[in-house]
């Protein structure tokens, strides 16, 4: 079933929406969750919570790209679980590596301007990514949005893991330079 039809089911409060979402995006959402949570049972719960969140969000939401909309929900739910797990010192090793890699690039901490700064920062990051060569952009997103392992990224693009690590490091370096030039304190 196409995205538009699935969204219409949500809007009509037709419970077939969940089944159709599972059929079309279940595997994708599970992969996204497992990348961050590692434990399959945690990932499964996360995906179930995603369907509930989607049911509660539509209406009024009418996402343009359903896959990205659902993926974002899963990603955020997985992050919440990860934080809870880390306070109990359980799991999340792979995700910690991801956070550490990004920590060298992106500003941390709160600013007095808070949410406004974040929107501006996000726009700048989007502009940077759009200007990047296609493969570099996609590899960055696969690693830092989809939380793919370096090995998974290497396999996807037919490269050696060393080459992927090096290329991601160079992209992070360029992003850091780009943000510094725009006045972000790093």
């Amino acid at each position: 079933m196409e995205d538009a039809a699935i969204i219409e089911l949500y809007w009509a409060r037709d419970q077939r929406a969940i089944g159709e979402t599972e059929a079309r995006y279940g595997a994708y959402l599970r992969r996204t969750a497992v990348n961050l949570l590692e434990l399959p049972e945690d990932a499964e719960e996360c995906v179930s919570d995603t369907y509930l969140a989607a049911w509660n969000a539509m209406p009024p939401e009418r996402p343009g790209i359903l896959r990205a909309f659902l993926g974002r929900i899963t990603r955020n739910l997985a992050l919440d679980r990860l934080k809870a797990a880390q306070t109990k010192k359980r799991g999340g090793g792979a995700a910690r590596v991801l956070f550490d890699e990004l920590a060298e690039v992106l500003p941390g901490g709160d600013t007095p301007e808070g949410a406004l700064d974040e929107k501006e920062l996000l726009r700048d990051i989007e502009a940077f990514l759009r200007a990047e060569p296609e493969r570099s952009r996609k590899m960055f997103l696969r690693r830092y949005w989809y939380a793919d392992s370096v090995k998974a990224v290497a396999s996807r693009y037919g490269m050696r893991e060393n080459s992927v690590s090096a290329q991601l490091a160079r992209t992070r370096g360029r992003l850091r330079k780009y943000l510094t030039e725009r006045g972000y304190a790093l």
Binding site: G64, L79, F99, G108, L122, W145, Y146
Partner: peptide, 16 residues
């Protein structure tokens, strides 16, 4: 800051 990336433009994300 990993969380911040969650709100990237869906078209960018979906392209990958």
């Amino acid at each position: 800051m990993f969380e911040l990336l969650a709100d990237l433009d869906p078209e960018l994300v979906d392209g990958a």
